[in-house]
């Protein structure tokens, strides 16, 4: 099976994020970047599918500046076969990303697109759904288990939803977005790292894809969440109830 896996370069979740004083974005100096952890799960799943089926191809796709090569190289070291980098310096909203991915899917004709359910930087959780809509493909978001029919024409996915788990079946090709419990991504081996050096990262200028990436969203302001204030101690339950009513105004 040919699988396309999306990879986004995001700040390391362990980095302390600081908002710029003018609220226009975050301070990017000294920030370490990693593969979006949900995308890492998607890469792992694609590799497992390939290993289990004993064949196929895992193609990584990313959109961004040259620096994204670092994350693509990591994915190739994990075992992906090749990568495509759409060179684009401007920030993109989810719809623009989905439109660019549509063009790539048309070119690459994969049976499956695996994506992280969301990127941990802006947490939009939209690109997968939008891509499915644009392609008119089935979608299975928040996947915690994926199985394929023997003929590889359809799949069953267990989704993590608010009420519990939902199992859905659908025909391929399709979009699946990965949730946290799907798998534990591998670390690359040394031979994997060395092989990655020789694997192809094809660069495509964004203009060549001919997609409409006009921004439809504007970031007005970024602000850090308010600091948590110290709590209050009360003597009696009644005092607590009174405060919840008069001060917190929640009951």
């Amino acid at each position: 099976m040919k699988t396309l896996v999306t990879v986004k370069r995001v700040p390391d979740p362990e980095t302390t994020i600081r908002v710029k004083p003018d609220g226009s974005g975050i301070v990017t100096d000294n920030i370490k970047y990693v593969i979006n952890p949900f995308d890492e799960i998607a890469i792992e799943e694609a590799l497992r599918i390939k290993e289990k089926q004993g064949g196929g191809e895992v193609v990584l796709v990313s959109i961004g500046g040259k620096s994204v090569t670092e994350q693509l190289r990591t994915g190739l070291a994990m075992g992906a076969d090749r990568a495509i980098l759409v060179l684009c310096e401007q920030p993109l909203d989810s719809l623009a990303v989905a439109k660019l991915l549509t063009k790539l899917v048309e070119k690459e004709t994969p049976e499956l697109v695996l994506m992280g359910k969301q990127a941990i930087d802006d947490d939009s959780n939209q690109a997968g759904q939008m891509l499915a809509a644009l392609l008119e493909w089935p979608q299975a978001t928040f996947a915690s288990k994926i199985d394929f029919a023997a003929d590889q024409k359809s799949a069953t996915v267990i989704r993590e939803v608010d009420g519990g788990l939902e199992t859905i079946g659908f025909a391929l090709p399709a979009i699946i977005t990965t949730d946290l419990r799907l798998n534990e991504p591998r670390y690359a081996s040394l031979p994997g790292i060395m092989k990655a050096r020789k694997k192809e990262i094809k660069e495509i200028p964004v203009a060549d894809l001919g997609a409409d990436i006009t921004p439809r969203l504007t970031v007005v302001k970024m602000a850090p969440p308010p600091k948590k204030e110290a709590g209050k101690k009360v003597e009696t339950v009644q005092a607590l109830l009174d405060l919840l009513h008069t001060e917190a105004k929640v009951i």
Partner: peptide, 15 residues
Amino acid sequence: TEEQEEIRKQVHALC
């Protein structure tokens, strides 16, 4: 080099 950085990163992931 990029590869040396990758080695460092992956050893950290293993450890």
